[in-house]
Write a protein that binds this DNA or RNA. Sequence first.
DNA 1: TCATTAAACGCGT
DNA 2: ACGCGTTTAATGA
Length: 225
Amino acid sequence: MAVSTDYLLTIATWAHELTPAEAEQAARGITEKTVPKGGYLCHRGDRMDSWTGIVSGLLKLSAVSSLGKPVTFSGLAAGGWFGEGTVIKDELRQYDIMALRESRIASLNGATFRRLFETSTGFNRFLVRQLNERLGQFIGMVAHQRMLDSTGQVARNIAWLLNPVLFPAAGNKIEISQEEIGLLAAVSRQATNRCLKLLEEKGYLKVLPDGIRVLDREALMHYGE
DNA sequence: TCATTAAACGCGT
DNA sequence: ACGCGTTTAATGA
């Protein structure tokens, strides 16, 4: 169940960095499926020999702590590709991945991924850029975690989901419950609601019935600095 | 005592 | 059925 090269180009920014022959090869290694809201793509400890792309929708990455408390680590938005670590190192999946709403998911099989990884400079350019972007984001997260109040945490986590390098198809509306924002930002549901109202008053975002619309991503990104 | 939280409840979509 | 606001009871600063 492969996919046409033209279609691949619409769902994967990295495909634009490949030669036509490489892109064709990649398209042959792609499969797609729909995951319902609340459905799991994989659980911690699964072996999953493929690289995953989000065509549409929203995922969260979480695990269960040693004492049984579920911990959310990160959100993943449309246009994002992830999981290269487990494919390259042939590891087991480190986290649970759940769909926060119905999501369309593409998979590039491991053999094709490794072939591109070994031979395509364009593909490697993309991977390095993506890793670099993520690293920068995570460093920023650690640096600011010590300084920001809960509103800053909420603002940053929302801005992260709209990172144009990591999630180029995300748009500016996020269909996510306030409870899930709270889990992402490690802030209680009540506090999340207060923070969202505050950010709305400042005009950085709009709270919608089914999520939020971001009006000023830069302001959210740098809130509290 | 005051603030914050999780859990329970109820309302509106 | 779900998300959100509110209430309540517990926790801790």
